[in-house]
Amino acid sequence: MGFLTYLINGLSLGSVYAIIALGYTMVYGIAKMLNFAHGDVIMIGAYVTFIGMSSSGIPAVPAIVISIIVCTALGMLIEKVAYSPLRKATNLAVLITAIGVSYFLQNIALLLFGSNPVSFTSVVKWQGLSLAGGQLKITGNAIVTIISCLIIMVCLMWFVKHTKPGQAMRAVSEDRDAATLMGINVNATISLTFAIGSGLAAVAGALLCSSYPSLTPYTGSMPGIKAFTAAVFGGIGSIPGALLGGLLLGIIEILAKAYISSQLADAIVFAVLIIVLLVKPTGILGKQIKEKV
């Protein structure tokens, strides 16, 4: 039963990685940039949810909704102020700016919330299930996290495939100039992508801190990097790839912690990434794009 419990915990952690990885992968696919500030948006989102629930006594769901709104606005603001002036700059300039934005957000959080960890109250009140005569316990957090992740995935895949803004995203991700010639507003599409990614980051922040309740201004950075790894693992730019990469990463991390060594768990995760990239440089679901000339 131990293995099953670990597996479910791994799926739950992996679901959080997957939701975060979506933000990385969509922004990379459409804006062709790595938004390293994405992890810190998660942290801001978690603080907003925390303040809503603990200080203002708002129930969990409306607190998360407020956090989604704040993060969506924050994501669009970051894009507008920091990234959109660099649309024609080199990739390196944009990457360094993203790292700068990441530190900026961490320092703003330090200033506003201090460096002492706050104890996040779980957004899930339900204790969960106890199966097989109490031998297999599944926490409410894990169930809610996994289900949220699946719902988000299905909605997003439907959105990208069947709505006009979703179609615009696919077009922009493939060829920005050709998309413009179709009448698609590329800047608006990129802004929408940041909005969606950052809104999801708010959800991820609440779910992450429900399972790992110690919240500091640096809470977002490690999950952010791991989710980025998950996105690369699954094939950056691919939405199903983010799901697969996130889940696998979560499972590997938890199993490594359980059976090998909790100190080595992160090293093992990254070693697996290196091996995957050596065998398949585009990631598991990444496509090698062949173009006809």
């Binding site: 006009k164 179609q167 696919r170 077009a171 100039d177 998309a179 010639l181 006809k292």
Partner: peptide, 26 residues
């Protein structure tokens, strides 16, 4: 005004029908 660009620039990973629908985006 429509512009058929140099090198065609079709959306390689979309289907023919999706490409055509993209043309009617506006």
């Amino acid at each position: 005004m429509a512009h058929v660009p140099e090198g065609r620039r079709v959306f390689a990973q979309l289907t023919v029908l999706e490409n055509l629908k993209m043309g009617a985006y506006t």
